[in-house]
Amino acid sequence: MEFYRRKSLLKKTLKETGLFSAFDVLQDDSKMLRLSLKPSVRMFAGDFYEVSISIPNSSCYNSINYVIAKLEDNKKKDLVLRLLHKYNNDSLVIKYYITPQNFITAKIAYIGSGNNFSGYEFIELLQDGLGIVSNVKDDIMDIL
């Protein structure tokens, strides 16, 4: 029941703020709500590979994921990892990593369940994260 409350609150808040139409619904079932920012909006927001929201049924760790770029040149991997390490040390909220598929990714985990989940806080984190990760993206793209 708690999962459906979080899912409903987030969708309601996105609709109230006019942001729901900026997302494609990738999954909306009893296991997960997963939304992805539409490509045209991603271009406006800093041309990310992907920006997605995940609200899982199995956990109170709700996430905002920013796929910054794909690392095509493994020779630059060490430079990118050093930069991500620096940003990971500087941030309490956003964590940066490279996936096994070589996507350079940033993630914000929003811990919220029951009455502790706020759709407005979640959207605020999404928007603030876009600005912060955009600055990091510029530094990463300079390396790439």
Rank of each mutant, 00 (worst) to 15 (best):
I98W: 08
S58L: 00
L92G: 14
Y120K: 15
S40W: 07
D138P: 00
T13W: 07
A109N: 15
I108F: 03
G129I: 03
A45R: 11
N135Y: 06
C60S: 14
F103W: 02
K86Y: 14
K12E: 12
L83Q: 06
S54Q: 13
N115L: 05
D142S: 11
G46A: 02
D138Y: 04
I104Q: 03
F23D: 09
S8D: 03
Q101M: 11
M141N: 13
Y61T: 10
A109F: 14
S30M: 10
D28G: 11
E50W: 03
T105N: 09
S30D: 14
S30L: 13
K77Q: 10
I53V: 08
D73G: 07
K95I: 02
L19H: 12
D138C: 02
D47L: 10
Q101K: 13
I108L: 08
D90C: 12
N74F: 09
V51M: 14
M32A: 10
K70F: 11
L35Q: 07
I111S: 09
L9T: 06
Y110S: 04
S8K: 10
F122E: 05
R42L: 13
E124G: 08
L14W: 04
S118R: 05
D28R: 09
V80C: 08
R5A: 08
Y110W: 06
M1S: 15
L26Y: 13
S58R: 07
R82P: 00
E124R: 07
L130S: 09
A22I: 01
S118K: 03
F117T: 02
T99K: 12
R34Q: 14
D142R: 14
M1N: 15
G119T: 04
F117K: 06
S21P: 05
S63N: 05
K76C: 07
K38M: 04
K137E: 01
I55T: 00
A45K: 15
L19N: 10
I98Q: 03
